[in-house]
Design a protein around this nucleic acid. Structure first.
Lengths: 403, 403
DNA sequence: ACCTATAGTTCAGAACGAAAACTAATTGCG
DNA sequence: CGCAATTAGTTTTCGTTCTGAACTATAGGT
């Protein structure tokens, strides 16, 4: 669970653990969409050719690797047998958000298949109702995967709330109106009989990981991800891993104090980033009235394009305070990049200059212009991250699939 | 190097690595000042008695453990042979600060011996001069240790600046006036012929670790340490480890933005915590003129005790902004405790209420009153942390001492 | 054809922990 | 007092895994 700070008693090192570790080591050196050979893996891992051959044999049995014919590189010597990640292994990704449901399948090479998004107002619906609706969608995706010959190793479900992944428990999801929900049964029903099961995750955290694996974050090893949805969520990627903090809830950038004299926040504090950069804050500061989110966002974009001063000022203020929070985080956590997703990626044109100027004002020289990126994954970010986490679990524990 | 985010190629798991891991595992289960036995270690680690016996034999050979006679617990059965951390193994700790030098020896049980502090105005002196003066002190400490039969396994040197421990390099220490200093030679001369050598560290980080191992932090697994010296430094302890961030410079709480409209800071930004809670800020807001730090601090404490309103307001403001930074960090990093050291521990009486009120205002319910602690280690914190890091290195790599 | 270079396999050997049988030292109880 | 019960620790055998060296396989160059 990626930098998970769990209380797991250090297991005694058995001789068999060495193999477990080396299976994962070999697998880590097979990159998506790139062929390799046993000899190359031996050179990269430092293992002997004999060991690599034995490990690869297990990984082929496990179905994680496939042989893809002879690699002819024109050089002298016997050509190697091509090895690649098996494109017929994947994981299910699913997302419950406030106004939509999403599912999809991601294979080991990172390709997204059978993606489907349905608009649905989930706020207020019971978890059973929502997951019932979601189950119809995951059934379709799983059947389509099966028809295409793709075996699903596991799955992930992202929700906009605080989760305890080990207990399949959503402690609170304010924007859904959920509190203290245990989902073991529902998660099992989403994807029966998969070796790695379905795991819960926080939506912003999963989106942050999706950027790392499949999006803007691929060029950074460490960054702050800020997701603009109804609330302002965050995910910290440190050393190419999600930083979850001691209790698993790190990255709550939405409640950084950016203006001690600022307005009251729903969290009980005041002057939080969310009170300046959350959807409601931007809409109301722009003078946009109530209505469906999509409609209000369209209004906002139109007004911005027309050069209307009130929305421009509102978005600039959001960018300014995003910069304050980014500057503090950059100094505190020693990260030098930031990726913005959710509604912020729609507002890139107006947010980017304000944010950059603000960061440079509060932490000069720390965040370079090309270290500010905006997500292109849109509504698939969270589900791709959830599926990706599941795939990483499989790749990190290949011995569980060896017969 | 404790949650060090280094680019180390994952080593292939060899069969021998299992022993290395199990040597460290057994050692981790021998706690300072507590006797144990082979049988108890077997139960705690999950290893078989046979394996533990063999591992313990190596650790005795390495000099890390000692047998301390028969443990009679009055119960039936053969009594076990007592095992304990060898009190005759230790590490040297040293600190260069702006106005003093400190050395000491810490043994495996955490006891501090031969501690010596010398007032010395190091700001402006060349690194060679300062380390020359320090070497005289470390020589005395090493000789005293030797006379007492204590073998020094390694050492640590804490400095108030950004360091690259792997390269023995101080990139910048503004308050010493050092920039780009390479200290390999000097470090080697401080403690010749020790198996683990002398390692550089940041002073606030080492102090944070000293609190974890030997001070207030023992009751927390995760906290923010804030050190008030000339600057405001910080250290983040997450999951009982120092969080260093991707480039090793995390924890710079002094330059969190706590008031966007605040005054200019030496870092180039403005509204940083340091501009409200640094020594200079507190002195000048209190109306205390120039002079030696010790003298000014005495003046401040006298004025506070007398109820002088200006210093009271200055210290309360420092506490208020410490609370803002703590609230943000608590939410962002998911830590729920804070430990204050340096000059803040002298000001506890006045800082504590202001800080607690501020934290509760900005992040209600996140930091409990008994999760705010003040350091009692004073001037020994950094050197104990530096020595402790060295000891931890030895305990984590016992196989290097096995003959 | 023959040499060289590279890929991959086979087999003996060493290191290690697991499991079980064994020895050692103590208490409790008849 | 003596024997059973109990706990501590050691010895022996075994299976797993990696390493290293020898071996086979397959290509290009001359």
């Amino acid at each position: 669970m990626s930098t998970a700070h769990l209380e797991d008693r250090p297991t005694p090192g058995r001789v068999g653990d060495v193999r477990k570790q080396n299976l994962a080591l070999v697998l880590r050196n097979v990159h998506p969409n790139v062929q390799t050979t046993r000899a190359q893996l031996a050179a990269e891992t430092g293992l002997t050719k004999a060991s690599v051959s034995s490990l690869v044999a297990d990984l082929l049995d496990a179905g994680l690797l496939t042989e893809v014919g002879i690699t002819r590189d024109g050089e002298r010597g016997r050509p190697g047998v091509g090895l690649a990640l098996n494109p017929l292994r994947g994981a299910l990704g699913a997302e419950v958000n406030v106004d939509y449901l999403g599912v999809g399948v991601v294979d080991l090479n990172g390709n997204l298949h059978f993606q489907e998004t349905t608009e649905r107002h989930n706020s207020g619906s019971s978890p059973e109702e929502v997951l019932g609706a979601l189950r119809l969608m995951t059934k379709r995706a799983a059947d389509a995967a099966s028809d295409a010959g793709i075996v699903l190793l596991g799955g992930g479900l992202a929700v906009p709330g605080l989760v305890d992944a080990d207990r399949n428990y959503v402690s609170t999801a304010p924007n859904l109106g959920w509190t203290g929900v245990e989902l073991s049964g529902e998660l099992g029903a989403l994807l029966p009989h998969s070796p790695f099961g379905v795991t819960l995750s926080n939506e912003a955290n999963s989106a942050a990981l999706a950027e790392l694996w499949y999006g803007q974050g691929v060029s950074f090893r460490a960054y702050l991800y800020i997701s603009g949805e109804v609330g302002v969520g965050g995910g910290l990627i440190i050393d190419s891993q999600l930083f979850t903090g001691p209790a698993g809830h790190a990255g709550e950038i939405g409640h950084s104090v950016v203006q001690p004299k600022g307005p009251k926040c729903t969290c009980g504090g005041h002057g939080c980033l969310e009170t300046f950069a959350g959807q409601e804050a931007i809409f109301s500061a722009s003078g946009i009235g109530d209505g469906p989110t999509g409609h209000r966002m369209a209004q906002l974009l139109t007004a911005l394009a027309a050069g209307d001063p009130r929305p421009l000022a509102a978005v600039e203020e959001a960018g300014y305070y995003l910069g304050v929070a980014t500057a503090t985080t950059a100094r505190l956590m020693n990260v030098a990049a930031v990726v913005l997703g959710g509604h912020f990626s729609l507002l890139e044109e107006w947010i980017r200059p304000a944010l950059q100027q603000s960061v440079d004002e509060f932490a000069p020289g720390v965040v370079a212009p090309d270290a500010v990126a905006f997500s292109a994954l849109r509504q698939t970010a969270a589900l791709m991250g959830a599926a990706g986490s599941s795939l990483r679990r499989a790749l990190a524990n290949p011995q569980e699939l060896v017969p």
